[in-house]
Design a protein around this nucleic acid. Structure first.
Lengths: 202, 202
DNA sequence: TAATTAATCAAACCTTCATTTAATTATATG
DNA sequence: CATATAATTAAATGAAGGTTTGATTAATTA
């Protein structure tokens, strides 16, 4: 009996990466299976040997992107830097992952809300998104507790940050005047300035 | 000769509103002409008496949303309040208009990407979007010039604000613990704190 | 080499729309 | 009332694209 896989294989990871690229570039509905397949020199039909449907492909991409993001942020949050430094680092992570195509979550959510309405699917996504939000929240709360940050409404502040950071994927262009790291640095500066003790009152 | 329109007419505004609702709920690609028509008790084909295509319908929705927003913001910017007060007011306007007209606002935000892929149409949208951004930019620049705000990268700051403000329509729920005005006030506070002279350096 | 199986492809399939077309209905004007 | 016109519809058209299907190719192992 013979069994091992042929080595002409395109690795599932390569397909995931291709799908992320195309979803990010064209949105979920705008991306065709043929587009994704072309990115790895396959035909549309061949993709079905690796993923059962376009929808599953999107889920896998979202899952991978958010999952990686969460663990990266988690590492920072559980580290022993001081809160302002942690905040700076996770802003860098967030922006960088958007730019690298890894976190297409933010980009894709702009076009896939209908898809995410599907109950079984939405839950996992929301759970992950909330987990990420909770990590951000913790950094802010720690900073307030130790006096590094002024007291403020943490819920609103975190959502404000999320909006600002997710929006980067809408306007960022590789050919722009600033690198991702520079953009992240500037955004981090904005929020750190805002968090300064005493900055809240006129 | 007879001429006047029959009064069984569905007003174009009603169609616009319906389109905004459906675009918001299902996204541009996910919205069918039949869905939109059903919202005003018509059939898909009937819509073509009022709008030449689905694409034009989206454009009209975006145009209405952005246009209203621009004129409101313009009034504030051209007023004679001091820059921090102007900023506070346009944040209020932005958030309030999202909340008052969630559907159009969300359509503007989420479907802008679909629109940007339509060559003939792209230009007008980009022009309006840039006009709105320019108004924000002007307030910041004025504030820096007169010493009310610290010096910073105005382009990034404005995009950061836009992201934060647009994101409100993603998470805002009427039943939430805060009113739109309270949310806007908190967000304005965040950015005003960030703009304080001297807040930038550690 | 022969058997087995993974990976792939080309073509067909089928559904879902946007849009068109050719009537049909309703209304205002004369 | 007569009729031109607006508004609408039901049905047809045609393209796009996700998914299936039935070979074909290549690699692995015995």
């Amino acid at each position: 009996m013979a069994r091992k896989p042929a080595e002409q294989t395109v690795h599932p990871d390569a397909i995931l990466h291709a799908a992320a690229t195309v979803f990010c570039r064209q949105g979920y509905h705008g991306a065709t299976m043929a587009d994704i397949a072309a990115e790895v020199n396959l035909t549309a039909g061949s993709l079905y040997h690796h993923f059962p449907s376009k929808q599953e492909l999107l889920l896998a991409v979202l899952d991978a992107g958010l999952g990686q993001m969460i663990s990266a942020v988690q590492a920072v949050v559980e580290g022993d830097a001081v809160p302002p430094e942690k905040l700076r680092q996770i802003v860098q992570l967030h922006v960088q992952s958007e730019i690298d195509n890894v976190n297409i979550a933010a980009a894709v959510i702009f076009e896939s809300r209908a898809l995410l309405e599907m109950p079984g699917v939405r839950d996992q996504y929301v759970r992950q998104r909330d987990a990420l939000e909770a990590l951000y929240r913790r950094v802010i709360e720690d900073g307030i507790a130790c006096g590094d940050f002024r007291a403020l409404d943490v819920g609103i502040f975190v959502k404000t940050m999320f909006g600002a950071l997710n929006w980067v994927s809408v306007w960022y262009r590789p050919a722009g005047r600033m690198s991702g790291a520079e953009i992240a640095e500037e955004i981090a500066r904005t929020f750190l300035a805002s968090l300064r003790p005493g900055a809240g009152m006129p």
